[in-house]
Design a protein around this nucleic acid. Structure first.
Lengths: 246, 246
DNA sequence: CGAGCGGTTGAGGCATGTCAAGAGTTGTGG
DNA sequence: CCACAACTCTTGACATGCCTCAACCGCTCG
C-alpha cells in the first residue's frame, strides 16, 4: 500500500474516529491489489473474508439468480463495500466486478471484527455506517416498489444533477445499459423512456443529460427526501448503494 | 411495564449480551403503551425519538409516496423495529400501523445512543443486529429485481412453509391484500397468481396454503439461500423486514 | 477492415395494473 | 337478532407498461 493512500482511507467516516495506533494496526494487516477491467473479484455466495475499499477506478455490485442478473450499485473512490457480510462472517449476497482498471484495499474481516471489539470509537463508527447503509437500501426498495420506471428515471436524473452541483447539464456517470439494470428495467426500455421524457423537460445528447425544464421534470419525479435524500447522508461512503456518488 | 415482560426483551439478541445494570437502566427510561387496531403509530418523516419493541399483537411497516403506499414488513412479538433511524437520529423512512390490538415498548433513542457508547458489549450487539437487518433488505431488493411476481409468490409460500416447520399445509400469517402489497403486486394479481399455481403443486383453501407437490413448486420458485435464507439468520428479531417470522 | 459492443428503434406479446361487479365475511348499531 | 355497512377476496374485461426479439447504426479496438 502506498503511504499517500493512508490519509484518503483515514478520511472515511468509518475510520476517522478510531485511534491512530488502531488504524495503523488495521492497515498493517491489509493489502492493496490492482484489478484489470471486467474482472469478477467477488462472487456471491463466497465467504466474506475481506472488507473492500475502492481507491481508484470503479466497481459494480450485482446480483445473480437463475439466469438473470441485475446491478445493485456502482462504487467509486473512496468507498468501502460489503461491510455487513464481513461483520457477520457470512457469504456475500452480491457479486462485484471492476468497470475499469481498479485499485482495491483488502482488510481481513477477522481483523475488522477484532478491532471493533477493542476500539469503542470504531464500533460507534461501524454502527453509524451500517445504519446509514441500511437506510439507503430501504430507500432503494421504496423507489422500486412505489415508482414506475419513468418516475425512477426522472428522479435518478434529478438526483444526479444535484450531485453535480445542481447543474442543468452533466454527463451520465455510468453506461446506459448498466443504469437501466440499476433502475430495474431493460436497456431498450430506458432508451425509450429517455426519449419520452423529452416532453417533460429533459433532453439527452449521447451520455449528456440536459435538463431543459427542471420544474416540469420535478413534477413528474416528485423527489422525496425520504427516498432520494438529502440527507444525501454521509454518502462519501459506499455500499449504502448509491449509484455513483461521484 | 410489567415485570414478566423484561425477560422476553432481555432474550432478544440485541439486549442479551449487555450488562444487567445497563439493561435495567435502559428499561427504566422506557415505557409501554397499548394501541388499538389500525392506529398509525409512526408516520414517515417524523423524527425517530424511540426504538420500538412489539410485545403483543402485530405491526405493519409501510411506505407512502405520492398517492401510493406499499407494505414493507410485518412484525410480530418479540421484535424491535426502526433501529437504524433511532441510531442516526434521523426521520423515519417508513410508517407503522397496528394490525390488531398491540402492545409496544418505547425506548428513547437518545438513551439508546448513549448506551452503546457506554456498553461495548451492547455496541457489538447493535452492530450485529444492523448488519443482519441490512442483509435482509438486500435480499428483499434482490427478490424484487430478479424474480417476477409468480416466482416471488411461490418462494414466499415455500419459505413460510419452512418457518411452519416444513409443514405442507399452513395458514397465511397475513391477509392476502397485505401480502400482495408486500410482494410488490396488486391484490387482484395475487389472487390470479395463486389460482394459476394450482398447476404447479399448490392449492389454496381460503387463507390455508396446501403444498401438494413441493418439488414442482420448488422448481418454479428456485429457492436460493442468498435470497430466501437460511441463515433464516437470527431473525427472531425484526426490522430486517421478514414478513411475519411469526 | 471486420468483429464486438453499446445504443436505438420497431413489432409484437406477455405480465401486470385498472376498473367494475358480485359473493362472502365481519363488525356495528338499531 | 337482524339489517346494514364496510371490507376482503375473487373474477372478468380491458388497458397499458414493460419485456423480447430482431435489425440497424455508430463507435472502438484489435
Amino acid at each position: 500500500m502506498r503511504p499517500e493512500e493512508l490519509p484518503e482511507i483515514r478520511h472515511l467516516h468509518l475510520f476517522r474516529d478510531m485511534s491512530h495506533a488502531n488504524f495503523e494496526a488495521l492497515m498493517a494487516s491489509s493489502y492493496a491489489q490492482n484489478f484489470p477491467q471486467g474482472l469478477e473479484m467477488i462472487r456471491q455466495g463466497d465467504p466474506a473474508d475481506f472488507l473492500h475499499i475502492v481507491l481508484e477506478g470503479s466497481v459494480e455490485l450485482f446480483a445473480r439468480w437463475g439466469g438473470r442478473e441485475c446491478t445493485m450499485a456502482v462504487l467509486r473512490p473512496v468507498s468501502t463495500f460489503i461491510l455487513a457480510a464481513s461483520i457477520r462472517d457470512a457469504p456475500y449476497l452480491m457479486s462485484a466486478r471492476t468497470l475499469e482498471r481498479t485499485r482495491i484495499i483488502l482488510i481481513p474481516s477477522s481483523d475488522l471484527r477484532a478491532m471493533f471489539r477493542r476500539d469503542s470509537e470504531f464500533s460507534v463508527s461501524v454502527i453509524n455506517e451500517l445504519a446509514s447503509c441500511y437506510r439507503s437500501v430501504v430507500r432503494n426498495a421504496k423507489t422500486l416498489k412505489l415508482r414506475n420506471s419513468r418516475e425512477r428515471v426522472a428522479s435518478y436524473l434529478l438526483r444526479q444533477s444535484l450531485l453535480a452541483g445542481g447543474a442543468p447539464s452533466y454527463v451520465l456517470p455510468v453506461e446506459k445499459r448498466l443504469l437501466a439494470s440499476y433502475l430495474g428495467m431493460t436497456a431498450e426500455n430506458l432508451s425509450r423512456t429517455l426519449r419520452a421524457l423529452e416532453d417533460d423537460g429533459l433532453k439527452m445528447d449521447g451520455a449528456r443529460v440536459i435538463i431543459t425544464d427542471r420544474a416540469k421534470l420535478s413534477a413528474l419525479a416528485q423527489p422525496d427526501k425520504l427516498i432520494d435524500g438529502p440527507e444525501m447522508d454521509s454518502n462519501e461512503n459506499g455500499s449504502g448503494l448509491p449509484i455513483s456518488s461521484r
